[in-house]
Structures are given as structure tokens and as C-alpha cells.
Design a protein around this nucleic acid. Sequence first.
DNA 1: GGAAACCACCTCTAAATTGCAACCAGTCTG
DNA 2: CAGACTGGTTGCAATTTAGAGGTGGTTTCC
Lengths: 160, 160
Amino acid sequence: MNRRRSGCPINLTLETFGDRWSLIVLRDIMFGGRPRGFRSLLAENIEGIASNILADRLKRLTGNGLLTRGDDPGHKQKIIYGLTEKAIDLVPLLAVMGSWGLRHTLPSTTLAIRAQVLEDGGPQLWSAFMEELRHIHLGAAAPEISALAKMQSAYAAAIA
Amino acid sequence: MNRRRSGCPINLTLETFGDRWSLIVLRDIMFGGRPRGFRSLLAENIEGIASNILADRLKRLTGNGLLTRGDDPGHKQKIIYGLTEKAIDLVPLLAVMGSWGLRHTLPSTTLAIRAQVLEDGGPQLWSAFMEELRHIHLGAAAPEISALAKMQSAYAAAIA
DNA sequence: GGAAACCACCTCTAAATTGCAACCAGTCTG
DNA sequence: CAGACTGGTTGCAATTTAGAGGTGGTTTCC
């Protein structure tokens, strides 16, 4: 039972996912384009997260209402992690973090593309992306614009 | 020499201040209304930061170009920490974090006011706040609108 | 039907970080 | 010149992290 350090909303947000890995895990699920299993999250994470850290964060994030744990109908043992509305509501935060990183750090050109698309698209694209995530993770209707597709094509264009 | 985990802008941002205390320290200097000294930051921090942690974070943030260390002309020993442009550029991030905290955590009513004012004011008020911070910390001209004054009066109104 | 691959973690260990309380030397104030 | 104030530092215990390897069960392939 960890009592809260203070009732400041910024502090409470920080207490929820203000460590070096939680947002990385959320980012991977968010931009991964589908709900994800443990192995795929572990293998495809570019920062090389350790399996015990990943297990711990998935547990915490699920406990804090940011992730859902679902069964895979085709595999009794497999667990599928999906985003909740609370996590989807982090899209603006991730977008703003990406923008700051673009301006004040030296990101690799290919990995910067996603952040650049979100910055250029602005709040309107963020909303479309959130709709898309509700479609993917919560079963809502598919939106007209696919932010993920925009990022994909921007990435493909940059490589060519 | 810690080499970076990846070139993703979100990750790089996280590596810069993605721990439980860095943003708390920045928040205190940002909303404190003036450049701040060590003792004042230590004594007025509501989360009860420890002095060694504060010293470490001030060192790191200064090293990362987010804070400036200035002398106090009236006290040879005193050091005044101020924000750099890089840190002032975090206003949107803090605002968005505050908004998320308002919606998804249970902040105390008085401490939520600041976040609420920033949310209601939107990007336009954020810009005014950033101008104000440039005035306070970088010696730029004073802006017409004072976001800090808005927060103050909203706070006063809420108490009455 | 047996082997190999895949599944979500768990265990162990060492290293790093955190939190706490006490302490310090120089500086200004009454 | 005593006491309060300055920005820290030191030592220590507890927690967290990182890395390597292992576990028990499931599904797939031949």
C-alpha cells in the first residue's frame, strides 16, 4: 500500500507511469497496430526491455486500469494485452513528448517519422488516432482516417 | 557515459527526465513564479523530496541543459536555479499531464486548480505562460497576459 | 506420437537507485 | 560573535533494476 506523495495531478500522473519503462510499453502497444502478447512485446521492443521488467510493468499497468488482459481464442495459454480508454487518452501526451524529443534530442531519422506525423497532424490527427485505437482495442467502429496508415506510408516514403 | 537505449524521440525524452522526481523539480521552478534556490525548493516541495535527490536532479537537469545555475548578487553562497528555453518548452507537456491527471486520478481540489486553468486556457494560454517564463527566467519582455496571475486568482476564488 | 518451437512468466544475482537522517563549512544578520 | 541560513555531502538500509537462465505447460510439425 503505497500512499500518495501529494494530490497534485502532475504528481499523481507521474506516480501512475512516471518511470523509465511504463510509457515505453504503452508506446509499443499503442503503435503496434494490434493488441499484443508478452513474447511479441519482448522480442519487438527496440530498447531491449528485460522480461522481468516487462512482466512487472504489464502487471502494474493492468492494475492501474491502463491495460486489459484478454485470452486468445486460438491458444489457451496466450494472453493478449490491450489498451483501455484511460491509456488511449494518453495519445496527446505521447504526441507532445515526441514533439519535445524532436526539437531537443537527436532522434534517429527513421524513428522520428512517427513523431513528426503526429506533430504535423495536430490535435485533429490525434483524435483520429484515438478513434482508431478504440476500434482496435475496444471494438468501436473504424474511423475514416487511419493515423497508423499515415505513419506507415510516411515511413515507407522516407526509406525510398 | 550511459549510451542511449534507442533513437526513438519518446524514449530519448524519457531518458532526459523520465523518473519520479525530475518533472516535480521542474514543476516547482516553473510554477514557483521566480527563480529558486536549493533551500526554498527543498522546503516548499509538497512531496517531501530528500535533499540528496534534489541535489542530484538539479545537477542532472543542469547538465542536460534544462536548468541554469546563477549567482545571487546579495549572497555569495546562494545559487539561483532558472529555466532554460528547453525547459520552458515543456509547458505543453506539463499541461497535458495535468489534464490527464484531472480526468483519470483523484487530485485534491485545491491542487487541481492550476491544471484546470491551463486546460481551460488551451494552447493560447500555454503560449502566454511560456512568454511569462521567458520574462522571469530569461529576461525577455513581460507578456500582456499573466498565466500565473490567472492561476493565482482562480485559486483565491476557489478558497473563498 | 514424439520433438521442437512457442507461451507467459519466474528465479537468482549483482549493480544501481532511492529514502532517510545526520552532518558540514562558509555566509549573512542581530 | 551567536544563531540562523546557504548549498549541499555522507553513510546506510531498503528498494528497484538489469541480465542470464529456467519452468511448466501448449501448440505445431513431421
